[in-house]
């Protein structure tokens, strides 16, 4: 079983994606999609990815909701900043180096995606030797504040899920 289906959840996700692409459920679609999902999982197994250990999946919906709220909020903030006439624009773009305690590669990937998908912040670089990451912020008022936001709002909760 383990050999045939190394990533069961991934296989189901691939089958669902195939059905979405076909825009309908039919016997042929399910069979072909199932075969493709098995093949895709075999390719994934050949890559020998480190296994993710998801703990406390229960906090994921709340996390996703907060990501959505944050994305909407910063869309508004960045749109206002862009539409302001250049003279009145007082923002200070800048880089912040933030020390992270998280080491799980999947947790770091999730953090990178959350921060980059939020308008106004871009994850630039991660230094695995001392575990710091470089963040670019469009409106950098207070460095300490950003360190606190990243650590309290996202990193702590992602660590609960991934570590």
């Amino acid at each position: 079983m383990r050999r045939l289906l190394p990533y069961p959840a991934m296989a189901v996700a691939m089958l669902l994606l195939w059905l979405l692409l076909n825009d309908g459920v039919s016997v042929g679609g399910v069979l072909l999609g199932g075969a493709l999902a098995l093949a895709g999982c075999a390719v994934l197994a050949a890559l020998r990815l480190p296994r993710a250990h998801l703990r406390r999946i229960a906090i994921l919906p709340g996390l996703l909701r907060d990501v959505a709220i944050e994305v909407a909020r910063s869309n508004n903030a960045v749109a206002r900043l862009i539409l302001r006439p250049p003279r009145e624009r007082t923002h200070q773009p800048g880089f912040v180096r933030i020390p992270l305690d998280m080491r799980s590669p999947y947790g770091l990937a999730a953090l990178a995606c959350i921060l980059t998908a939020t308008p106004g912040t871009v994850w630039v670089d991660y230094d695995s030797s001392d575990g710091t990451m470089l963040l670019h912020v469009l409106d950098l008022i207070d460095r300490e504040e950003w360190v606190r936001i990243v650590k309290d709002r996202w990193e702590r909760r992602l660590m609960e899920v991934f570590e």
Binding site: V78, I82, A117, P119
Partner: peptide, 14 residues
């Protein structure tokens, strides 16, 4: 450039 990086994210998210 580093300020402009943030702009297209508006279109690609909401």
């Amino acid at each position: 450039f580093y300020a402009r990086v943030h702009a297209p994210t508006l279109g690609t998210t909401l």
